[in-house]
Simulated scan of single mutants.
Amino acid sequence: MDEQRAQAIANSPDMKHVTYEGTPIYIQHVDTENSTARIYPLDQPEQEQSVSVDSLEEH
């Protein structure tokens, strides 16, 4: 996924189907300087992590 799309999904009021390593996730924030996204699994909101935007996949 590219940074612009990740940012659009993060800012969207609608839930999009996005995964990280096969796990459905929620994008909290996109850091365009570092090309990373702050995410968490939908079923484990306490498991926040920063990952490369390139590793996110939209379905």
Score class of each variant (00 low, 15 high):
I9K: 07
E57F: 09
Y20G: 04
S35K: 14
H59R: 08
G22L: 08
L42M: 07
E46P: 01
Q28H: 11
M1Q: 10
S55R: 12
D43H: 08
E48D: 04
S52M: 06
D54F: 03
E21P: 02
Q28A: 12
G22E: 11
P13F: 02
Y26W: 07
T32K: 15
Q47R: 13
A6S: 09
S55L: 11
P41W: 00
V53P: 04
M15D: 15
T36Y: 01
P13I: 06
I27A: 03
V18L: 04
E46A: 07
S50V: 11
N11V: 01
V18E: 02
T36H: 04
N11F: 00
H59F: 10
D2H: 15
T19H: 06
M15G: 08
E58D: 12
T36P: 02
K16M: 04
G22R: 08
K16G: 03
I25F: 00
E3S: 14
R38N: 05
Q4C: 05
Q28M: 08
A6G: 12
D14I: 06
G22A: 11
Q44Y: 07
E46F: 03
A6W: 02
V18S: 04
T32M: 12
Q28S: 13
Y40S: 09
Q28I: 14
E58K: 09
N11I: 00
I25K: 00
T32I: 13
Q7C: 07
I39A: 01
E3I: 15
Q49C: 11
H17G: 03
S50K: 10
P45V: 04
A6R: 05
V51G: 11
S35G: 07
A10M: 05
T36N: 06
Y26P: 00
T32L: 13
T32D: 14
H29P: 01
N34G: 08
D14T: 11
D54R: 12
I27E: 03
K16T: 09
Q49N: 10
E21C: 09
Y20S: 05
D14W: 09
G22T: 11
P41K: 00
Q44P: 00
I39H: 00
S52R: 05
A37G: 13
